Amino acid sequence: MTPRESGGPPDGLPVRVAMDGLPARVRIYEVGPRDGLQNEAAAVPVRVKAEFIRRLAGAGLTTVEATSFVHPRWVPQLADAEQLYPELAPLAASGVRLPVLVPNERGLDRALALGAREFAVFASATESFARANLNRTVAQSLAMFAPVIRTAAEAGATRVRGYVSMCFGDPWEGPVATADVVRVGVRLLELGCTELSLGDTIGVATPGQVAALLDAFGRAGVAPGRLAVHFHDTYGQALANTLTALRHGVTTVDASAGGLGGCPFARSATGNLATEDLLWMLHGLGIETGVELSALAATSRWMAGQLGRPSPSRTVRALTGD
């Protein structure tokens, strides 16, 4: 079914009407292959993962988080990192950024041995999630990351991103204090992270909370150019929260093609913000991304077929007729 047949716009694109106070361009940090596929009940074959990443890059995404070098016992869906990453060498050579998540020095060593040069570490703003996800306190996890970040820099890493999870709410502890999030984020920057991704892991944030957190980081001396946002759409707030972040100067947004993902360590977390839904909003606002929406929707439809279920992205369904 074509967009015209489904009642959508004849060219499959939103009407572009700009708004004041928004950036001219946004970088999309695609997390589907890692954060999306790690939440699948069964592991996806390496050949399918590699093709997925190639198609994402072909649609114009220039930053695609490829995989995670965690112990297979913790995330068995990504146990094939050593097999997958070499398949992506031609993409890396062409300039596509392929960051990988590394939980500790052992994971970093594995990634470095395969030629990876862009990394991410995953911290928590709350004690409960730090114990569930890392089996450590917040302080212990930050101490664990210190040599990882230092060694990565010494090995020639181009970037090290610091994820901060549970920035707005925690399923065990409830609302999260803004000061706790800022403290963890600032410490990651002090350790050498080049960027912070602020995660609404269980999708409970609303725009007022987002504005308050970004203002707090500003008062702590952290420029919005060093921040990214990572929203889950549990309560349908991800796009509203993203727009709030853009108004506060953030220009890097995490999203997952087709809305894949959740969090294996927080069962109340539902899918990530779908990249296609984000693109529909950004392109409608006249914000450049370099990503071709129709090609990305086709990629997500293909991936949904590989997984045996429809894409949860509203935009994918609208554009493809699924």
Rank of each mutant, 00 (worst) to 15 (best):
T2C: 00
P3E: 07
R4Q: 13
G7N: 06
G8D: 03
P9Y: 06
P9R: 14
P14C: 10
V17K: 10
D20I: 00
R27G: 09
E30Y: 12
G32L: 08
R34Y: 04
Q38P: 13
A42V: 14
A43F: 03
P45A: 08
V48R: 03
A50W: 07
G58H: 01
T62R: 15
V64K: 08
H71Y: 02
H71S: 14
P72L: 03
Q77K: 09
L78D: 01
D80R: 00
D80L: 01
L84C: 04
Y85T: 03
E87L: 02
E87H: 01
L88V: 13
A93M: 05
A93F: 07
V102W: 11
E105S: 15
L108R: 13
D109S: 14
R110K: 14
R110C: 03
L112M: 11
G115R: 13
G115Y: 14
A116H: 11
A116K: 02
V121K: 06
V121H: 03
F122Y: 15
F122M: 05
A123P: 12
S124G: 05
S124H: 04
A125W: 11
A125C: 05
F129P: 05
F129N: 07
A132R: 13
L134T: 13
S141G: 14
M144Q: 15
F145I: 09
A146V: 09
P147M: 12
P147G: 10
T151P: 00
A152K: 06
E154R: 15
A155V: 13
T158V: 14
R161K: 10
Y163N: 15
Y163Q: 02
F168C: 01
W172R: 12
W172Q: 04
P175C: 09
A177K: 13
A179C: 02
A179R: 04
V181Q: 11
V184R: 04
G192Q: 01
C193R: 11
E195I: 01
L196V: 03
G199L: 05
T201Y: 07
T201A: 03
G203E: 14
T206C: 00
T206S: 00
G208P: 00
A211V: 14
L213G: 09
G218K: 12
V222S: 08
V222H: 07
A223V: 12
P224T: 10
R226A: 15
L227T: 05
A228R: 10
V229R: 05
F231S: 06
H232D: 12
L239I: 15
A240E: 00
A245F: 01
T251S: 13
L260W: 10
L260R: 08
G261F: 14
G261P: 13
P264Y: 14
S268Q: 15
A269E: 08
G271P: 14
D277P: 13
L278V: 10
W280H: 11
M281C: 06
G286D: 05
I287H: 04
A295I: 01
R301Y: 06
W302S: 06
W302E: 01
M303D: 07
M303E: 10
G308R: 13
S311C: 08
R317I: 02
L319T: 11
